[in-house]
Every structure is written in C-alpha cells, then in structure tokens.
C-alpha cells in the first residue's frame, strides 16, 4: 500500500483513496476518426509498462475527485513526485535529476526524450 502526497491537498494520504489509471502524458488524438487503426490501437492498448521510472495518472474518488500525475519507481514502489496536470513536468524531471535515458513512455514525453537525445 502506498502513501502519497496529494498535490491539491498538499498532505500525505492513503493510496486506497485513489484509483490509479495507467500511464500519464499519453496524448489522446485530437480527431480520433482521422487517425489510422495503428495509431489508435497504439494510443488505446499499448503501454510503456516501465520497469523503473513510471509516469501515471491518479484520481481521488473519496473526496475532491481530481486527477493528478505521479512519478514512481516501479521496482521499489518509491514515489518520486506528484504534480497537477498544469505543472511543468520538464522542470520536475530536471529537479529530480532523472536522466532522460531512463524515461520510457509511449506518449508525449517520447517527443521530449527524442529532442534531448
């Protein structure tokens, strides 16, 4: 069971108050009807499933019901950061000193990773 800093409440809360809803920073295609079956399938079904630094979406379901993101090490389950969607993820990554090489994501951050390498 994880113990997490809720970025809206700014206090430590129990994981059982939240649902964890898969990978964060996957951009939903703006016009789904126009993307190919391949791109749509990639968006819906394929995940980074990272062993190591993982970006994921959490939602509170017992109180404020808002969404936020969590960076967690999936080997140790240690939570490295929690942030609201409007916060600057690049800055958070830089502040944590995470090497871009260690980031494996199937969504938006992929672009970020490409640019930096």
């Amino acid at each position: 069971m994880l113990y997490v800093r809720d970025p809206y409440l700014n206090e430590m809360r129990d994981q059982t108050e939240y649902h964890i809803r898969s990978e964060a920073h996957k951009a939903r295609p703006l016009e789904p009807s126009k993307v190919s079956d391949k791109d749509w399938g990639d968006y819906i079904f394929f995940f980074a499933n990272t062993k190591g630094i993982h970006f994921e979406r959490w939602v509170n379901f017992t109180g404020h019901r808002k969404w936020f993101n969590v960076i967690r090490n999936t080997v140790t389950d240690e939570i490295l950061a929690t942030y609201r969607p409007d916060e600057d993820v690049k800055k958070i990554i830089a502040d944590l000193g995470i090497d871009k090489k260690d980031i494996k994501v199937s969504g938006v951050l992929k672009k970020l990773k490409k640019k930096s390498s």
């Binding site: 069971m1 994981q15 649902h19 964890i20 995940f47 993982h54 999936t74 080997v75 140790t76 389950d77």
Partner: peptide
C-alpha cells in the same frame, strides 16, 4: 493491485 509494479509484492489492502 491497480498499479504497475515490478516489486514482486502486493499491497495489504
């Protein structure tokens, strides 16, 4: 558990 993990252990809840 609801979350991705390679820790080879699950939560008490």
């Amino acid at each position: 558990d609801e979350f991705v993990s390679y820790s080879q252990r699950g939560s008490f809840d």
